[in-house]
């Protein structure tokens, strides 16, 4: 049982190259959330956010990387996800964050949705590099 609990500050890296990697990444995120005893709503929020960001990497950059980091402490669960790519970048971040804005005929719900689901959301982008850092923060054993 104890072996299921991930090590503090453990980090796992998932290369994002095709759509099976989206499944891999979101499974990994959900597993970590579950192991840290977050509830099913939080597990789903995190998995969905990871799904959105990794799909964006595939769609707009072709490939990239997703790192899932457990930075929890004794009194706080803190899961950080960093998704990076070396694609074209996002020319207008404000526009990309707008509900319904999509350059691919999508719903344009990914980025603004992820921001609403997460406690932290940082987006940096320039031609050749895009990085999204998101995090979920919960007091220990008080998650729903």
């Amino acid at each position: 049982m104890d072996t299921l609990i991930p090590q503090e500050n453990a980090e796992s890296t998932i290369p994002i190259r095709d759509s099976t990697d989206i499944l891999k990444a979101r499974h990994r995120a959900r597993e970590l959330a579950a192991a840290l005893r977050l509830g099913s709503a939080d597990q789903t929020r995190l998995a969905t956010a990871v799904s959105e960001l990794t799909r964006n990497v595939l769609q707009y950059a072709g490939e990239g990387e997703c790192r899932i980091i457990n930075a929890s402490s004794d009194h706080e669960v803190y899961i950080q996800v960093v998704v990076e790519d070396h694609g074209p970048g996002i020319p207008d971040i404000e526009l990309a964050m707008r509900d319904g804005y999509s350059t691919s005929g999508g719903l344009g719900a990914g980025l603004p949705g992820v921001q609403r689901l997460m406690d932290e959301f940082h987006l940096t982008s320039r031609p050749g590099y895009t990085c999204l850092m998101i995090a979920m923060k919960r007091p220990r054993a008080l998650s729903f």
């Binding site: 998995a47 969905t48 799909r55 999508g106 719903l107 719900a109 990914g110 949705g113």
Partner: peptide, 9 residues
């Protein structure tokens, strides 16, 4: 377990 915006669309 996950319905993201792609699946929704």
């Amino acid at each position: 377990e996950v319905v993201d915006s792609f699946m929704a669309r």
